[in-house]
Amino acid sequence: MSDLRKEVRLRTFLKGRIVFNGGNASMDCLVRDLSTAGARLALSETAALPDGFDLEIPAKDRVYKATLRWRRSDGVGVAFVDDRMPAQPAAPAETSVTALLQRIHDLEAENATLRRLVAEAEAAMLERTA
């Protein structure tokens, strides 16, 4: 699969949201690889995913138009239709502050989870060497 790509994908661990059906449906995903031409997304379920959708990546403040290139039980590969699509218009200031506070809360929770996983991995490594 990698020899078919035009660009190298960088490994990532970014929260994403797939938006489809005119914005009426969405699902969370994890962006595992990313390039300017496409991405690999980890999903809990791929059956309900349409062939075309918007991919929001809040950490990059970007929205990509994406098309489905391949599908597996644990994820999908997508190609970006227009990698220069601007982010969605800014919401009113009150909503932006609320959204920003929620994003900070979500990122703090994600950081705490990652710290815990690193600590568990370190403890497991120490047990193996002891």
Rank of each mutant, 00 (worst) to 15 (best):
T46D: 07
R69L: 05
R84D: 04
A93V: 13
A48R: 09
D28E: 10
G52C: 06
D54I: 03
R9F: 06
D74T: 13
G52R: 08
L34Q: 09
I104Q: 03
A66E: 00
L100P: 04
R116Q: 15
F80W: 00
L41A: 02
V78T: 00
K60R: 04
T12L: 06
L101Y: 14
L34N: 00
V76E: 05
D3K: 12
L41S: 00
S73T: 13
D74E: 11
R9P: 03
E127G: 00
D83E: 10
F20M: 05
D3G: 13
P58W: 00
S2T: 13
A79R: 01
A90S: 11
F53I: 01
E7I: 07
D54R: 05
T36S: 10
R128I: 13
R32G: 07
C29M: 08
D51L: 12
T129M: 00
T95R: 08
R17W: 05
D54E: 15
V63N: 01
N111M: 14
G22W: 07
A25E: 13
V63L: 11
V31D: 03
D33Q: 00
P50I: 03
G75C: 05
R17E: 14
T129V: 12
S73R: 03
G38Q: 11
I104V: 14
L49H: 01
V97P: 00
D33M: 11
A39C: 09
D54Q: 10
N111H: 14
F80P: 00
T12Y: 06
E94S: 07
M125A: 14
T36H: 02
L117M: 15
L100T: 10
P86N: 10
D83N: 05
T113L: 15
E94V: 09
R11M: 08
Q88C: 01
M27E: 12
L4C: 11
L55D: 05
R103N: 06
R84F: 04
R11C: 04
F20W: 09
E56G: 04
A59C: 06
L126A: 09
M1T: 02
T12N: 10
R32N: 14
R32E: 15
K65Y: 10
V31S: 02
